[in-house]
């Protein structure tokens, strides 16, 4: 029963090897879906290319229902998998700053590495920026430590906060995602980009 490393079916070192293999899969899928192109990524915000929206939400709903089915079959103990803790103010502020970074730089950290791997110089510069940004955060930590740790809510699930079962929430997210896919496809027709 999963997660394998928690249930000591695989060792901590094997886990690192698995991390490497998972990374290869991650990088391969990102690159072959076109996430190595910043203009393709940014396209979602202008409607000319919504590949980000499609890949991102398809991946989220696939993993979400995958986990729920695996739990249903007793293959994985959902109480043992990592759930991101929720700190409301820093999640909103951090997300907003990342959103600005996304539209300025055209990448997110994962895709920038993927893009740098195939030789995009703008991605390499973006990675340089990432390092600077993290360093700034680390050096000025005392200035925003209070804000960083404010509003801790534990590790609630959205389903719990809304009072729904996990299954119902997953169904809602699937419907929302499919709705967005149709809007995305419509937008691609409505706002075509002339050249590539």
């Amino acid at each position: 029963m999963g997660p394998l490393v928690i249930n000591e079916i695989i060792s901590a070192n094997t886990n690192l090897l698995i991390a490497f293999l998972i990374g290869i899969g991650f990088g391969f899928v990102l690159e072959s879906s076109g996430f190595s192109s910043s203009r393709k990524l940014a396209g979602v915000f202008y409607g000319y290319d919504t590949v980000v929206l499609k890949v991102f939400f398809t991946a989220a709903i696939t993993a979400m229902i995958g986990l729920l089915f695996m739990s249903l079959f007793g293959w994985i103990d959902l109480d043992l998998i990592y759930i991101n803790p929720t700190y409301v103010p820093s999640a909103i502020a951090g997300g907003a700053i990342m959103g600005a970074g996304f539209i300025f730089g055209g990448f997110c950290p994962g895709t920038s590495f993927c893009s740098a791997a195939i030789g995009k110089i703008d991605a390499i510069v973006f990675i340089g920026g990432l390092f600077i940004g993290i360093l700034i955060f680390a050096e000025g930590y005392s200035l925003w430590e209070g804000f960083y740790k404010a509003g801790f809510k534990g590790i609630p699930k959205l389903s719990e906060s809304l009072g729904l079962t996990d299954g119902l929430l997953a169904f809602g997210v699937i419907i929302a995602a499919i709705g967005m896919f149709y809007v995305g496809e419509w937008a691609e027709k409505k706002f075509p980009r002339e050249e590539y």
């Binding site: 991650f26 910043s38 991102f56 991101n84 803790p85 700190y87 820093s90 999640a91 502020a93 951090g94 997300g95 907003a96 700053i97 990342m98 959103g99 600005a100 970074g101 996304f102 539209i103 300025f104 730089g105 055209g106 990448f107 997110c108 950290p109 994962g110 920038s112 703008d122 991605a123 510069v125 973006f126 990675i127 340089g128 920026g129 990432l130 390092f131 600077i132 940004g133 993290i134 360093l135 700034i136 955060f137 680390a138 925003w144 804000f147 960083y148």
Partner: peptide, 24 residues
Amino acid sequence: FALIGGVLFGFGSQLGRGCTSGSA
């Protein structure tokens, strides 16, 4: 712009405890 975006994203990812892949 890529550099500015990188700095912002790097900072935001630390404040928000994870980036698009890790958190979102």
